[in-house]
Design a protein around this nucleic acid. Sequence first.
RNA 1: GGCCCCAUCGUCUAAUGGUUAGGACACGGGCUUUUCAAGCCUGUAACCGGGGUUCGACUCCCCGUGGGGUCACCA
Length: 484
Amino acid sequence: MIRVRFAPSPTGYLHIGGLRTALYNYLFARKNNGAFLLRIEDTDRERFVEGATESLLHIFPRVGLNYDEGPKLIDGKLEQAGNVGPYIQSLRLNLYKTHVMELIEKGHAYYCFCSSDELASQRKEQEMLKLPTKYNRHCLKLTKEEIARKLELNEPHVIRMQVPEGESSFNDVVRGKITINHAEVDDQILLKSDGFPTYHLANVVDDHLMNITHVIRAEEWISSTPKHVLLYQMFGWNAPEFAHLPLLLNSDRSKLSKRQGDVATEDYLEKGYLPEALINFVALMGHNPKGDQELYTLNELVELFDLTKVNPSGAVVNFEKLDWMNAQHMKRKTANELADLCQPFLDRAGKSVDRSVLERVLKVEVERMTTLADIVDRVEMYIAQPEYDAQLLVWKKADEADAKAQLTGVQSIMEALQDTTKEGIEATIKAHIEQNGLSNGNVLWPLRVALSGQSQSPGPFELAEALGKEEVLRRIAVAIAKLS
RNA sequence: GGCCCCAUCGUCUAAUGGUUAGGACACGGGCUUUUCAAGCCUGUAACCGGGGUUCGACUCCCCGUGGGGUCACCA
């Protein structure tokens, strides 16, 4: 059975590139009836932040990427779902230790007692001489006795993999065969002096122990993949398939970074982008399901996903397209759904709006919103009598007297009106215009301004429906008063 | 700099040896129209360069060029 995993380090948020990686893992698993697991790679204790894992975990249910195995927050408590856990690397330290000892016994790894300072100066020297910056294998020359003595004296040490001569290659699902000469590969540290594993060791051990069949991760890992392939060989394990995803890029084509704008998925959610729009958006960077369809649901993406069709080249993130896509997804929602989604934004802005009013407003305003957060400004003219200058009521081809006359005419019609739907209002007022030989502009411009107080706004009929008869009459009266 | 990866409109992409090189965002024009938005129609815009292979190359190969990634006791 196909098993894939998304393995972020706990930064406390999900990078938008990470969202894409997680999504592709998810799509591949679901498409093939496989399992999708989440594993937290928290082996860097220097960057450890209390609570970061927990806060990262919140994003997955929010965007609808549900994993079958991994750490889950249940009633605020961290629990491990699945039977090859725990799925947090800091909880698996013994596993790495026993495995690295196995490598030492097999002669594939060795103790290294060089200090960080020594290594740094070695590197500096190598750089000056324009040599590859690799460990000089100083500690490989140590005798068994010397090593035993140093260990006995508790000298700080790390464990390195001993990279053999030759070359190794692997087949990348999106790029084909990649070969790298071992001369380019450093004797990677596997176990740090604090007893924690490095990414390379932990990743390989866990992927094997968790029966991962496909490693789907970002392109930046390509150059260290030979180390991983070598580790599988040293352990005598079969390596999984690898698929390296193209990078998401800033507009200057560098790796998408925090410096050039928001990169956390959570930030976009806070700005009012819909999870399904975000998913749809990142899905299309690097994979094109159909050719000319742009809007997809998660299920459609699952159905159409093909890992072998992933595009190998990096993709510049076009946030204007995200805006468009978000607007499209919002338009596909009912007023009821949108009201639920917008409510938190109104709450945060301290605006309270009657639910039925909100739904009617949304029906009208969704046409000109790009994010859910836009509702905060857009709702304003519906909940408070707008301020405006009397002159605004006068259509370009008319005068004040005419504006007043038309509003008065509409006023009496509205008072008698029973059907206050948009259609009902429109039919009645259009009939009034036609019967009296009036023009749309003379009547509708002042009416629209009376209702909205703005030079640009939705049309008068939809505004009238959203405002309700009582408010419409009130605003018309205010307008007429302004012209008196 | 070494090594590795990549290369179609400004951006995301389709095309898998034979197309007027298609779609989307953005931009321009038009329709609709009381204004705006939406919608619909439409326009501008691309195969990085050079060699091969082939009857025929965006598609395959090689070399350049350009861009990116990576060279940590970070992932």
